[in-house]
């Protein structure tokens, strides 16, 4: 089990690191897809079937498309421009390392390690009952936020009306 998790961690981490390092934005986005798939496999390995499939569906099916679309629309199929100056790169690296360190530290020092016995996975029906019962308000709130974000995005991206844009 540990070995499997280690392999999955590699499947997640290697593409993620590569995604940050490659110059080609499209390659980077596709590598992210691989990392997300690894994450979904992680969920599957610990028995969270529903989460795993939902994760794959949302990230691989939806988010990756949006990312690619954005990349293509801003920079149609071209290699990214000049490499960033070295000072900037160093700063970026510092931020990344400190972020990872703080996350790792918090999870190692302030989180209780899980018991050796894995908790049995929540049955799907129970999950549905939880979402529709105690967590209904949270679920609706999340939905509302997403809707607001969607509408906001639409408003920002929508082309200007002919009345404003002149004789287009």
């Amino acid at each position: 089990m540990t070995l499997l998790l280690a392999i999955l961690a590699l499947v997640c981490l290697v593409p993620a690191v590569a995604a940050v390092l490659v110059r080609n934005l499209i390659h980077s986005a596709l590598l992210f897809v691989l990392a997300w798939l690894g994450l979904a496999a992680f969920y599957l390995a610990v028995g969270a079937e529903f989460i795993a499939f939902a994760h794959a569906l949302v990230y691989v099916g939806g988010v990756s498309m949006v990312v690619l679309f954005a990349v293509l629309l801003t920079r149609p199929g071209r290699e990214s421009a000049l490499p960033a100056p070295s000072a900037q790169r160093a700063l970026g690296g510092l931020v990344a390392v400190s972020l990872v360190a703080s996350m790792l530290g918090s999870s190692i020092f302030w989180t209780r390690l899980p018991s050796v016995e894995p908790t049995p996975p929540v049955p799907l029906r129970r999950l549905g009952e939880l979402l529709a019962g105690p967590y209904l308000v949270a679920l609706l709130l999340v939905g509302l936020i997403l809707t607001v974000a969607l509408i906001g995005g639409l408003l920002l991206a929508a082309p200007r009306r002919p009345s404003e844009g002149g004789d287009a």
């Binding site: 801003t74 149609p76 071209r78 004789d167 287009a168």
Partner: peptide, 14 residues
């Protein structure tokens, strides 16, 4: 028809 000048900031032309 009035020529469609590419808008400012629109993506590259193909």
């Amino acid at each position: 028809t009035p020529a469609f000048a590419p808008e400012e900031g629109a993506g590259d032309l193909l």
